[in-house]
Computed example of a mutant assay.
Amino acid sequence: MSNRIVITTDYLHPGDTVDAMLRERGLEPVYSPAGGHRADEEKLALFAGAVGAIAASEPVTAQMLAAAPTLKVLARAGVGYDNVDIDAAGELGIRVCNTPGVNHHAVAEMTLALMLSCARRLSSVFEGLGKGVWPREAGTELRGKTLGVIGYGPSGRAIAVLGAALGMRVLVSTGHPDASSHVSPSVEFADFDSTIGSADYLTLHSRAGKGDPIIGAETFTAMKDSAILINTARGSLVDEEALVTALEAGEIASAGLDVFQREPLVGDNPLRTMSNVVITSHLAGQTLEARERAGVAAAQAVIDVLDGKVPNGLVV
Rank of each mutant, 00 (worst) to 15 (best):
M223H: 05
I230W: 10
E188G: 06
T140G: 10
R143E: 13
G295H: 06
N276D: 12
H104G: 02
E141Q: 06
A158C: 11
L247F: 08
G128M: 01
A20L: 04
D307I: 03
I279L: 03
G144P: 04
P154W: 12
V296W: 04
L283V: 12
S2M: 09
V96K: 06
D16P: 04
D40E: 11
A222S: 15
S254E: 03
R136A: 07
T195Y: 04
S2F: 03
Y81S: 05
R23D: 02
M110D: 00
H176L: 15
L114Q: 02
A217C: 02
L243M: 11
K224L: 13
P29H: 03
T221E: 07
I7F: 01
M64C: 00
E289G: 08
F220P: 00
V310M: 06
V244C: 05
D268M: 07
A179D: 15
A50Q: 03
G148D: 11
R4E: 10
V172I: 15
P135M: 03
V79D: 01
T70Q: 14
A119I: 07
G175V: 15
D40F: 01
S123D: 14
G101Y: 02
L65C: 02
V60L: 04
L166E: 09
V296K: 12
E58G: 00
L142Y: 04
L229Y: 04
V305N: 09
P69M: 08
R169N: 14
V244K: 03
K131H: 13
L162N: 07
V266W: 09
L147Y: 09
H104D: 11
A88H: 10
G52P: 00
D19A: 07
S2N: 12
Y81I: 10
P29L: 02
G36R: 01
L162K: 14
R121D: 11
A165K: 13
I252M: 03
S2R: 11
R136H: 05
V315F: 06
S236H: 01
K224P: 09
L27Y: 06
L71N: 00
A158S: 14
A48G: 04
S57K: 04
V310T: 15
P264A: 07
T17W: 00
G211K: 10
A158L: 11
L129T: 13
R121I: 05
H205A: 07
V170D: 09
L271T: 07
G209C: 10
N276T: 14
M1W: 06
A222K: 15
H37S: 00
K309Q: 07
P185W: 09
G130W: 12
R136S: 06
T70K: 13
V266E: 14
N3W: 01
I214Y: 09
G93Y: 07
R95K: 12
V73F: 05
P311T: 03
